[in-house]
Design a protein around this nucleic acid. Structure first.
Lengths: 109, 109
DNA sequence: TATATATATCGCAATATTACGATATTGAAT
DNA sequence: ATTCAATATCGTAATATTGCGATATATATA
């Protein structure tokens, strides 16, 4: 017990849920917003901005990278992170398909 | 350690993240999709549909209720669950504000 | 080459989540 | 009143997540 039974769901449900799960942490939302506003940033900027330990920021960046929503490229001794436009647009589409569906009038409530 | 430092984020970031967190589980995505398709359902329908224990489904329903996205009303000896339209629309707006923002061209990647 | 800077990774402790059996609780039917 | 059916809640075991210090790695600079 304690482990999500992914095998009983549709691939699409697992995929959407895992994207949402990664986004479901305030640090990762804050990181995305910062990158979007600044266009790009390095890990240390986020350490200062958010006040979390460097190891913690690095871990959150890794999770965001794992779903492809950000990308890092080495620039001298630092790593420049920015939004991966293609993935961002794919996510927009995926989320819109789910969230922007019309919900019919309640039958019971 | 082990606990999310909500105090260092903006209220909006915490709120958005906690909504996404609740949605970031395939069972809850599946439950929402089932309710949307069927217009409404009772807990036992979901137990049969998903094959999770009744206690587990009940717990997921509780979490969905906690963010207000579904609502349950007693109907005889069962409880009829359906989407709370107002909340659903609020969420649409909230998610669209975040996800449908335009992301500028990469500076480094 | 030595040192400083930036990031990634490891290992760990604290906490949270997931799933489920057992057990209430509540209303319907007999 | 008793039984059945549907749901909620409690307690618990297994697992996952969060955050951080310590350390490794890699590049720039003196």
């Amino acid at each position: 017990m304690g482990v999500t039974k992914t095998e009983i769901y549709k691939d699409e449900q697992n995929k959407l849920a895992s994207l949402l799960k990664v986004l479901g942490h305030p640090a990762r939302i804050a990181i995305l917003q910062y990158i979007i506003n600044q266009k790009a940033c390095i890990c240390n900027d986020l350490v200062e901005e958010l006040g979390l330990a460097q190891a913690t920021i690095s871990q959150h960046l890794k999770e965001l990278k794992s779903i492809g929503i950000i990308q890092g490229s080495i620039e001298g001794k630092s790593v420049c992170y920015c939004i991966e436009e293609k993935a961002w647009k794919d996510f927009q589409e995926e989320f819109n398909t789910f969230f922007n569906q019309d919900v019919k009038v309640n039958q019971c409530c």
